[in-house]
Design a binder for these strands. Structure first.
Lengths: 250, 250
DNA sequence: AAAATTATTGACGATTCGTCATTCTAGAAC
DNA sequence: GTTCTAGAATGACGAATCGTCAATAATTTT
């Protein structure tokens, strides 16, 4: 047998495949926002796509795996938004605010993707997703958390924040994350929220963040600074800022 | 046509039906914790139960409706735990802590039920559940939130807490709820949590609560009181306390 | 006890998932 | 340019699951 170089990496095939995968994902999103989650069927996806069912199953090992893939997409979008949010000037506590805002904006402007994120966190979906894709998702989540940790570390370094006794950076990042996740999940798009229906998401969310950061004694405190103004300013900044294209060096 | 009394309310049939429904729900739980969410099938539930498929569909209009029913069960259990937690003596801030602890304990000791709660919050499930059961769930959630609100109102009345300017009771309850929900969801049973794997749930959760309540200036502050001790004390209290039976007047 | 109303059954149709033998394609070897 | 081959694509098919409904049984009413 001739020493075949194994051909391991398919040269340009890979690109086409990734491209098509993205195409399938956006198509799935369209179906979701048009017909709801009950309307997303593999057969339907097949019918509306340009490829056959077999090919689709060549991308996603199950319908649930498709959901996990959508959640990965979701996280990537979120990562982009985080990057943009961090470019808004402001002191460290304002930057935390910017991240929370970006998260919130994402959940509001991309309800479908956000709901995919929630769905993909469900045991029924996890059980039937491919391990590799689950790992990918976890890696992306880690990137997001790392951003938060860096922000906290930076605040400590510059002196606007002191690490509480016996606590880790991780713990602080977790608390922030939990707060943001919980708030956005409860304010979730669908369902007119009988529970907290009369609450205004924006200011309630800001309240939670302020309480948390005040509790941490993260300077300047909410009594020393108008974070409502900061929130407003950042909202317009995030909305208007020309999103820098993907692979752009600068 | 003879004036039929409509027979509206079936006298004792209802009891039997409710009893059987509970039986089906616990059976479904057993299947879930034994074979995972992928293993729960209507046919399988039928096979293991003493009734036929038709009868089961006479209780739950779809498989998703069954999940919503499980989440209702979950909330009822949680309500019980809240009641018990409130009986533990302590000042108002300790009582808030007790509620958080009860929530956390529930998510840890009844992982399956908690996961049902998460699953039932998913659009795919909501879309296919019966409106009446969704309403029931919402009502129970409302009860839980009301308990939180009362606690806050009481603290304000007795002077250990002041309502922040321009904020409502609802908003404060929401923030607490979001924090608790987020933390427990992220520390969810399944999946060894690569993100926050090395974190110790207990103390991290306590940290979050303390930050929030300190931010609210809810007395006594965490620097003036050993809430870690309170947490420990309540944990044993919750674990050991003889659970008062359901319909017991006292 | 007969009639009438309500509940139960489980076989069946319909839907959806996921597979696999076959067909096709793109590039390597000659 | 032709042949060869590894891998990709296809879509008909089998399997699994959902949910229904005509027939039957149980219970209440008269």
């Amino acid at each position: 047998m001739p020493a075949k170089p194994a051909s391991e990496a398919t040269p340009k095939r890979l690109l086409a495949k990734q491209l098509r995968e993205q195409e399938l994902l956006t198509l799935a999103q369209h179906i979701l926002q048009q017909d709801g989650f009950a309307g997303l069927t593999m057969d339907r996806l097949t019918a509306l796509s340009s490829v056959s069912k077999g090919t689709i199953y060549n991308h996603f090992c199950s319908k649930e795996d498709l959901f996990t893939a959508l959640s990965v997409d979701s996280l990537q979008r979120q990562l982009q938004l985080f990057a943009r949010a961090l470019q808004i000037p402001g002191h460290s506590r304002e930057q935390v605010l910017a991240l929370h805002l970006a998260y919130h904006q994402f959940s509001m402007t991309e309800p479908t993707l956000f709901l995919c994120l929630l769905t993909a966190n469900t045991p029924g979906v996890i059980e039937k997703s491919s391990p590799s894709r689950l790992a990918l998702r976890q890696q992306l989540e880690m990137q997001l958390v790392t951003i938060c940790q860096q922000l906290i570390a930076q605040a400590i370094a510059e002196g606007s924040l002191q690490l509480p006794a016996k606590q880790s950076l991780d713990a602080l990042a977790f608390v922030q994350w939990a707060q943001a996740f919980g708030s956005n999940a409860l304010f979730k798009p669908t369902q007119q929220l009988g529970l907290f229906g009369q609450l205004e998401p924006q200011s309630t969310m800001l309240l939670g963040i302020n309480l948390l950061l005040d509790g941490l004694n993260w300077k300047p405190l909410s009594k020393e600074w108008d974070y409502h103004a900061s929130w407003q300013r950042m909202m317009t900044a995030l909305a208007s800022e020309p999103l820098l294209a993907d692979g752009q060096t600068n």
